[in-house]
Every structure is written in C-alpha cells, then in structure tokens.
Amino acid sequence: SHLLVAEPEKLFAMPDPLQPDTAQRTLTTLCDLADRELVVIIGWAKHIPGFLSLSLADQMSVLQSVWLEVLVLGVAYRSLGCEDEVVFAEDFVLDEDMSRAAGLTELNAAISQLARRFRTLNLDREEFVMLKAIALTNSDSIYIEDMEAVQKLRDLLHQALLELECQRRPDDPQRAGRLLLTLPLLRQTAGRALTTFYSIKTRGGVPMHKLFLEMLEA
C-alpha cells in the first residue's frame, strides 16, 4: 500500500499542435516526455522505503543505472491494453506505422514484447508497483559503494512480493518467481531504449533537456 500511494500521477506528452506531425515532432515529444518522466522517477525513488538511507552517491549510481528500466516498465504497463501500440502517454500512443516513420520500429517492437509478457502474466497494479521498486534496487552499477545496503533493500522488497503473492495467490506458488523472471527482458528492453535515445542524440537535430542528456551520458 505504501508503493501504491507513492505511485506518481500520470504525465501527458502534449505534442506541439503548432508543429506538423512529422518524425521530428514525434522524437521531440518523446525526448521531452522522457525528461519530465525522469524528474518524476527521481521524486518517486525517494518514496521507496529505504532508498534515502543509501548514501547520496549510491542513490545517484542506482538511478543512473536503472532509470530507463523504471521508465520502460511504466510504458509497458500502460501499453498492456493495446496490442502493437506503445502508450508512452495517454495522449501519445505510437502504433507500428508511426513508429516506423520516426525510426522507432525496434524500440517499439521491444516494448511491445515486454508488454506481451506482462499481458500473458496478467500483471496487476500491485504487482506492477512491486516490480518497479524491485527494478530500482536491482542495480548492477559498478559504482555502488555499499552494495550490501542495496542488497538489503532488494531483499526487503523481494520479501514483500513473496508475501503479497502468498496472500493473494496461495494456489500459485510460482507467481512471484515468474514475475521476477521478467527482469532480464526488462533490462534488455531498457538497453534497446538507451541505444535508440543515444543514436537520436548523436544524429542531432532533436532538442534534449539537460537532465535527460545528463542521465543518457551517465
């Protein structure tokens, strides 16, 4: 219930109505949305029990390594209801054609694959918030100084997931494990997102906010 309360309000992408609906506008909207999501994710992380007990340096290392996993998990969860469409925001849904036009075919295929996996599992909101908090603490950053503290947080959230599933689905003892086994695909998908955003940055021409650039370069 703590995690449900910590869940941020949804963001809107608000594509610029004065700009023609081009690939350029799609990418600009996407990068602007990602920047605002980042601010929200950083604020959200502070509400995850124990996160603020990490040193500031470790909080930074953790977020720098997992922010895209947290972001992508949210997008995949929002996309559960629609096949082959990626819901970056309620007012910014990219189907296959729009994705192709913007050069986002591979990213959208990857997020759709993750969303399909969650759809098959019938992932619900409680499980989604649990998994997102676990993804935060599942960092493998080599810059973490006190890995034991991060591991302790991870164990705590893992335990909470086990208890949740034990209460709600005592007939399905594999449920928690099945959810945790989606984490490799989440990491792979976030890797795809990183490659995509990085190549947009390298090509240039799409405005990117400072925080987004800072995290992309981290």
Binding site: I42, G43, L63, K210, L211, E214
Partner: peptide
C-alpha cells in the same frame, strides 16, 4: 559528480 549536477540537486531537494 560535477557532471551530474541536476540529478544531485534533485536528490537533495526535500520534495
């Protein structure tokens, strides 16, 4: 840390 100024600042904000 100088390179990650904004993240640093956002984490230090009390919100």
């Amino acid at each position: 840390k100088e390179k990650h100024k904004i993240l640093h600042r956002l984490l230090q904000n009390s919100t």
